[in-house]
């Protein structure tokens, strides 16, 4: 990886990686493999689309943020430039949550995916998948969703109705090029903790081969980001997910 030393006119000497930076000219931040500044960048895999825009969605408390971090970590390890956009704080409390992941071989992208530009939607909750599709979907989008429903308060109180899983499936057929619906929560509950459903989903995502990620990449990432005592259960969850596709 080519590195250049840049003088910041104070004490700082800033190392620049072989990738675009704000301090370099615009011509070097065009996207794609011919990006001059990124020519030396080594990726150990290819994206089927560059950049790939991924949205991970769910309900506050389902482990959305953790899933996006693990997935992004795996991709960064593989040499990609990843931008994650997410919100948390009060917006997390029982509301819809969304992480935008943008994977590129050459460019830092906006932390918000533009409308209609998602490539992959991963949902820990079915209507959240639909909600994301209606804003970010396009005829080529692929969607992978957990079938476990978490009823919004308005549905519980009876002010709104929740579509059946069959209806959800039909809507996916209209709005996505590919779709998978899996019962990740049941698998996670069987493993002893419903929160593991996010890892089951990551395993399933690996199973779809939409992204250059596999078990080894997962193992490598969790070795860094998850306490050792929890490695085995997470690996089991990942494997269970991968098998569901």
């Amino acid at each position: 990886m080519k590195k250049t030393l840049i003088d910041t006119n104070l004490q700082s000497k800033v190392y620049r990686g072989g990738k675009e930076e704000a301090t370099q000219s615009y011509s070097t931040i065009r996207r794609g493999v011919d990006d001059a500044a990124n020519k030396g960048r080594r990726m150990n895999a290819n994206l089927y689309k560059d950049p790939t825009n991924i949205i991970i969605t769910g309900v506050g408390g389902q482990g959305n943020v953790m899933a996006s971090r693990v997935l992004a970590g795996m991709l960064v390890n593989a040499g990609f430039i990843v931008t994650i956009g997410e919100t948390f704080g009060m917006s997390q409390r029982g509301g819809s949550v969304m992480s935008h992941l943008r994977v590129s071989s050459s460019s830092v992208l906006s932390p918000q995916i533009p409308q209609g530009r998602a490539d992959i939607v991963i949902a820990l909750e079915p209507v959240e998948a639909l909600r994301v599709l209606t804003r970010y979907g396009n005829p080529d989008v692929a969607v992978l969703t957990n079938s476990r429903m978490v009823y919004p308060m308005g549905v519980i109180t009876g002010d709104f109705t929740y579509p059946s899983l069959d209806e959800v499936r039909t809507m996916f057929e209209k709005l996505a090029a590919k779709s998978w619906i899996i019962d990740a929560t049941s698998v996670a509950v069987d493993l002893g903790n419903p929160v593991l459903s996010n890892i089951v989903m990551i395993g399933a995502l690996a199973g779809t081969s939409l992204l250059p990620i596999d078990r080894r990449a997962f193992e490598k990432e969790i070795a860094k980001s998850i306490p050792a005592g929890k490695h085995q259960i997470n690996l089991t969850a990942f494997d269970a997910g991968a098998k569901m596709i």
Partner: peptide, 12 residues
């Protein structure tokens, strides 16, 4: 599809 998606308001 949009009108069939129940809103998800924040809650305690």
């Amino acid at each position: 599809v949009a009108p069939k998606i129940p809103p998800r308001a924040q809650t305690f």
